[in-house]
């Protein structure tokens, strides 16, 4: 009995750790940078996928991004994190920049991964 419990516990811990590793999305390779700041705050997360779709906190947007952000009734101190596919053109950032600015939010965090 005791060895069985040991192994079950180890499996439990294994899956707890493994669960923290984010599932990698083929549609979203974030750009590499030399930044040393860890990304911790994820209050509002906008994702721009390789196929050009916008996701707000993991759900696809049917209407525009500006409308969706408006519905959330954000304050000016809200922190918005942007995960954007690295090969997308600069124009794909425009809707995000535009709507964030309209809300009066001055800061935008762009998620990057450490460059190898």
């Amino acid at each position: 009995m005791i060895p069985a419990i040991n192994i079950v516990f180890l499996l439990l811990i294994f899956f707890m750790i493994a669960g923290h590793i984010e599932a990698r999305n083929e549609q979203l390779h974030i750009p590499g940078s030399l930044s040393e700041q860890d990304l911790n705050i994820r209050e509002i997360e906008i994702q721009v996928l390789a196929d050009g779709n916008y996701l707000l906190n993991g759900t696809a947007l049917s209407s525009g991004i500006a409308a969706a952000l408006n519905d959330m009734a954000l304050s000016k101190e809200s922190v918005i994190t942007l995960h954007v596919h690295r090969d997308l053109p600069a124009s794909s950032l425009d809707p995000v920049l535009n709507s964030v600015r309209k809300l009066g939010i001055k800061q935008l965090l762009i998620a990057t991964e450490q460059q190898p």
């Binding site: 940078s33 040393e36 762009i110 991964e113």
Partner: peptide, 11 residues
Amino acid sequence: NRTKQIEVSTS
């Protein structure tokens, strides 16, 4: 590979 961040102003 921890996710890092870059801060930009949008003003």
